[in-house]
Every structure is written in structure tokens, then in C-alpha cells.
Design a protein around this nucleic acid. Sequence first.
DNA 1: CGCCCAACTTACCAATTGGTAACTATAGTT
DNA 2: AACTATAGTTACCAATTGGTAAGTTGGGCG
Lengths: 132, 132
Amino acid sequence: MIENNDEKFKPAFCPIRHVLDRFGDKWSILVVELLSQKGKLRFSEISGHIGDISQKMLTVTLRSLEADGLISREFFPEIPPRVEYELTELGNSLIPPINNLLHWGQAHIETILDNRKQYGDKEKAKAKKTTA
Amino acid sequence: MIENNDEKFKPAFCPIRHVLDRFGDKWSILVVELLSQKGKLRFSEISGHIGDISQKMLTVTLRSLEADGLISREFFPEIPPRVEYELTELGNSLIPPINNLLHWGQAHIETILDNRKQYGDKEKAKAKKTTA
DNA sequence: CGCCCAACTTACCAATTGGTAACTATAGTT
DNA sequence: AACTATAGTTACCAATTGGTAAGTTGGGCG
């Protein structure tokens, strides 16, 4: 049996899990980063900048970011309606750590893709050997 | 039509997407963080520390981290077999940005959960009004 | 009258993710 | 002969995620 006093990795206690649960989805970080670069944006503008997000996913993403207090939503009861989204202070505090991760990605993604490719080749070679 | 010269958010060009594709899954960051804290670990030790990961998912997680060159795998052909995993240099370079995000999470998760709860209550109130 | 706009909501469907349980190899132990 | 242990693999299944397409709202305009 393995000793386990470090509950940092156990389901209910792990802070990493909270972060992953929040930002592990396909769009949240993208929207936050976009808002940090462009400031206040309308629904259709966010949609246009990202390009391949569906209306549905943009709505649920914005709703959950709003629910968590990371963005604010201002609705203008005009016809046609207008809605503006903006990062809150809490949302802005997320930008530095996200940018750190981003820079790491930019710096190392090529190496990673290279490694992955080489690993794939190695696996193919192994497969050939065992079937030959 | 929205002008869109910023291809940073478009599918093929966005570095954020690479990072998300790599670490958006349930276990990768957890394993990397664990290895950074404990150093060299065996399969069963990782499994024991994390607690609720299935054998299958631990294998696929370790394989993909290895494929990307983030961890190294040393196999000892004993009976029963022994395998040791360790962060590579590339893997180690990931630790600072991950820790940044982690600290943000620790600092703000309570606020976020509070916000989420309040938002849920507000939504409930709205729903009552419209059905009443 | 009917079509437009933006910002949704809804119903339905497909793909991906991850879990369970059984099976594998191999040698030592009872 | 049966059971142990480690580090897997495999088949199958359930839940989650995300996409498509249609409908909704309501005032302005042809």
C-alpha cells in the first residue's frame, strides 16, 4: 500500500483540478485572452474574431465566465439588441498566468510536435518488427 | 463583416490551442505536477498518489507525455516488471508557468465558487418570476 | 405583410472522453 | 497447480462535449 498524506492530488482537495475544470474546455481561455487584447466586445465581434465557434458554444462559454465573475455582461435593450462583454478585475488577474503558459507554448510547441512525430515513427517501426 | 487580421485566434495559428489541446485533458497536468514534486516514480506510485485514475487513463496519459518528450520512461525487465517515470528538462520547464496558474487558482477559487453560487441563485429567482 | 437585425434558445445528433472489467506475460511462492 | 505481483492491453459502454439547424424576440423598413 502506498502512503498518501498528500491530499493535493486527491479528488476533492486538489486545486489543480479546479483550474482544469474551469479552463479545460475548448473556448474559455480563448475568450478571456481575446477580451484582454481587445477590451469591450459584442457577442458578434467575439464570434467573428475567433471564427470557428458556434453560437451555442459562445453563449454557454460567456454564461459560465459571467457566472464565475470573470467577465461582465452589459445588455442594451435596443432593437436589434446589443450586448457587451468585458473582463472584470478578477478576469484581468488571470491574464498574467495565462500569458506565462502561452509563452511556454510558443517557445516549445515546435519541439513537442517534433518529439511527437519521432515517437510516432518509432512506434510504427516497432509495429513492423512484431508483424514481420 | 468583421475585419480579422489577427489570426492568433483562428484555428490553425493559435498557440493557445496547442496548449489547450495538450493539457486540457483530465490527467496530464496532474501527473506532471506530481512528478515535479516527487521526482522519479513508478507506475503504481503515480496511481497511488493520484488515487482515482484508472490504469487505462494513466497509461495513455504517460504515453502521450512521453511522446511529447515531457517525461522519460525507464523499463526494468524484472519480474514483476518495474517502470520509472521522470520529468525531462522540457517537462521541468513547464513547472513554473503551471505553478503560476495553480497559485492563481488557489488564490481565487473561493471567490469563483462564491460568484458561481450567487449567479445560480439569481438564475433561480429569475426562473421563479417567469413561471409565477 | 414579411423580412431584417442581434443575441440568443432549443432539439437533436455525432464525436470524443474516460470508466469498468477482463485478459496478458512472467517468475516466485505456497 | 494455484496465487502473487507489476504494468500494462483490450473490448465494451456511459457520460460529456460540442456541432447543426431551426425557432424566438420585437421594432424598423420596403
